[in-house]
Structures are given as C-alpha cells and as structure tokens.
C-alpha cells in the first residue's frame, strides 16, 4: 500500500459481468482494490452504486478512473482523496 488512499464512487448498469469489468481495469495495471462495497436502493429504482477504495499515486488512479468511465455499463465515476489517509 503506497500513495494516497482514494475512493471511487461508481454508478453502474446492472448487467452481467459489470464488477469483473471494473476489477479488470485495476488488475491489468497490477493494482489492488482495498475494499469494495455495492449498495442498491430497490425502493427508488436507482442504479447500483459501487464504492471502491484503493491506494496509489494520483496519475495512476486518474488513469484507472478514465478507463472505468469508458466502460459501456458505467454511468458515472467520481473520485475522492481521503484526508489523512
């Protein structure tokens, strides 16, 4: 674990394999995912939200975010750097 800790908030269309696609963006770069949580709100029929935390330098994490945004099944990605991480 080196670099800062980042949190990616991802909204995704609930299609087969979407988590694999996201995980592959990390794995291809030899990058680990620290934590992964999936939240869904069936009452409001909104898209599932994935929260992923990962360590790394900003350039590398920005690339990962850019590549995840490109995936067809992904709606939005927002990136937060954790304070005192």
């Amino acid at each position: 674990m080196s670099g800062h800790k980042y949190t990616l908030k991802i909204t995704a269309h609930d299609n087969i394999g979407v988590i694999v696609r996201i995980a592959q963006v990390f794995a291809r770069r030899g990058h680990s995912i620290e934590t992964l949580n999936v939240v869904r709100d069936d009452e409001h029929d909104t898209l599932p939200v994935l929260y992923i935390t990962a360590y790394g330098n900003k350039t590398r994490i920005d690339q990962i975010v850019a590549q995840i945004k490109k995936l067809v099944d992904i709606a939005t990605v927002t990136l937060n750097e954790e304070q005192d991480g």
């Binding site: 394999g17 694999v20 291809r28």
Partner: peptide
C-alpha cells in the same frame, strides 16, 4: 469466452 475476451473488446 465472455470473460476471456472482456479485456480485448470495447464491449
């Protein structure tokens, strides 16, 4: 093949 090809396709 769905998982095998995932990294080499647009979708």
């Amino acid at each position: 093949i769905f998982n095998i090809t995932m990294p080499v396709v647009k979708h």
